[in-house]
Computed example of a mutant assay.
Amino acid sequence: MQSLNKGKLFIIGIGPGDTDFMIKRASDAIMESEIIIGNDFYLDLIKPLIGDKEVIYSSMGKEVERARRCIELAETKKVAMISGGDPGIYGMAGIVIEIIKRDNSGVEYEVIPGVTAATAAASKTGSPLSGDYATVSLSDLLTPIEIIEKRLDLAFQMGVPVVLYNPKSNGRPHNLAIALEKALKYKNKDTPVAVVKNSHRSGEEIRYYKLSELFEDDEFVDMRSVVIIGGEESEFIGDDENIRGIVTPRGYDRKYVY
């Protein structure tokens, strides 16, 4: 989208936050920008790239204000809006572009992709998302819980792996239990599950469960976790004493001899 002004807005996905897992275009755009704006947590992860640039810190729950501010600033300056993961997947791109469209703004913008939480977590657990899969966020801050429950029902009936974003927080500790109870309606109780906490970041932890086990005790899961629930064909790699990951076959065994 082109503009007559000299500013530009970069809406940047930084992936998990480790700069080694950020695409080059993202780091280049940060270096090119005059102003960096974003949530405190994500800005702290990329401090080495920010240097002495002007930084505007924003907290959770201030997404609309943050979006309006970055659009205003980008009228005349190059601005980097920082988003965790991929900005177009539960990230900041949606609200920023909604406001640009609603206000008929002429701001020039570029959305720069990043590694989303589902694929970041999956890479640590083998290949659980080899084919089709679904993602559902359990956060009901913007989406009513009734709609989330409907989506969960439909997703689990598909028989594919399901990745749960925002699985549990202090403000909504029971949404994960609701999701797991629905999963057990459609999936085998021994379905493999991986919980990845702080994927590709300091404090990373990975635990494996059978579906019924996680339903019985989900204490390990928090807001920094991603929960990957296997599909009909998903299998643990290794045995019960030494689980090394999860693989979901795509069907090569039905078509080829190997």
Score class of each variant (00 low, 15 high):
Pro113Ile: 06
Val64Ile: 15
Thr119Cys: 14
Gly251Ser: 05
Gly251Asn: 04
Ala183Ser: 04
Leu4Gly: 08
Val64Lys: 15
Gly13Arg: 05
Leu176Thr: 01
Ala80Ser: 12
Ala183Asp: 02
Val195His: 07
Ser83Trp: 07
Ala26Glu: 03
Val193Pro: 04
His174Phe: 10
Ser105Ala: 09
Leu211Trp: 03
Asp217Thr: 06
Ala117Pro: 04
Asp18Pro: 05
Arg207Ala: 03
Ile206Arg: 00
Ile228Gly: 02
Thr125His: 00
Gln157Leu: 13
Tyr42His: 14
Arg102Ser: 04
Gln2Lys: 06
Gly171Ile: 12
Leu211Gln: 01
Asp239Ser: 00
Val160Ser: 04
Gly114Ala: 02
Ile23Trp: 06
Ser130Gly: 09
Glu54Tyr: 11
Asp239Gln: 03
His174Ile: 05
His174Leu: 01
Pro16Leu: 04
Ile12Cys: 08
Ile46Pro: 01
Leu4Glu: 10
Lys182Ser: 06
Asp153Ala: 00
Tyr57Glu: 14
Ser234Tyr: 03
Ala26Arg: 02
Glu63Trp: 11
Thr248Val: 09
Pro113Trp: 12
Ser3Gly: 09
Arg25Cys: 13
Val226His: 07
Asn198Leu: 10
Glu108Trp: 07
Asn242Ala: 09
Glu146Arg: 13
Met81Ser: 11
Asn188Cys: 07
Ala134Pro: 07
Gly17Trp: 13
Ile148Glu: 00
Asp28Glu: 15
Val195Gln: 11
Ile46Ala: 09
Tyr258Asn: 12
Gly131Met: 08
Val115Trp: 02
Gly88Ala: 15
Gly126Asp: 02
Val221Ile: 07
Glu75Thr: 08
Glu72Pro: 01
Met1Glu: 15
Lys210His: 02
Asp40Thr: 12
Gly15Pro: 08
Val227Asn: 05
Leu45Arg: 09
Leu184Trp: 03
Asp253Cys: 13
Leu211Asn: 01
Met92Lys: 05
Ala134Ser: 15
Lys47Arg: 15
Ile11Pro: 06
Pro113Lys: 06
Met81Tyr: 06
Phe220Ser: 10
Ser234Ala: 09
Lys189Ala: 01
Val79Ile: 06
Ser137Val: 06
Asn198Met: 07
Arg69Thr: 05
Glu232Leu: 03
Glu32Asn: 08
Leu152Cys: 00
Lys62Tyr: 07
Tyr186Met: 08
Lys6Asn: 09
Arg102Thr: 00
Gly13Pro: 12
Gly88Cys: 10
Gly61Ser: 10
Gly126Trp: 07
Ala26Tyr: 05
Ser202Val: 15
Gly51Arg: 14
Gly7His: 07
Gly231Phe: 01
Gly231Arg: 01
Glu235Phe: 14
Lys182Met: 11
Val115Asp: 04
His174Val: 05
Gly159Trp: 01
Phe10Glu: 00
Ile30Pro: 06
Lys6Phe: 11
Phe236Ile: 01
Leu49Asn: 07
Leu138Ala: 04
Ala74Gln: 03
Phe21Thr: 13
Lys101Ser: 13
Glu241Ser: 13
Ser169Gln: 08
Val227Leu: 07
His174Lys: 14
Lys47Val: 13
Gly159Asn: 03
Asp253Tyr: 13
Cys70Thr: 08
Lys101Gln: 12
Pro113Glu: 13
Val79Ser: 02
Gly17Ser: 08
Lys185Ser: 05
Glu235Thr: 10
Ala179Cys: 09
Asn39Phe: 04
Ile243Gln: 00
Gly203Thr: 12
Ala120Pro: 09
Tyr165Ile: 09
Val96Gly: 01
Tyr90Ser: 03
Ser123Ala: 14
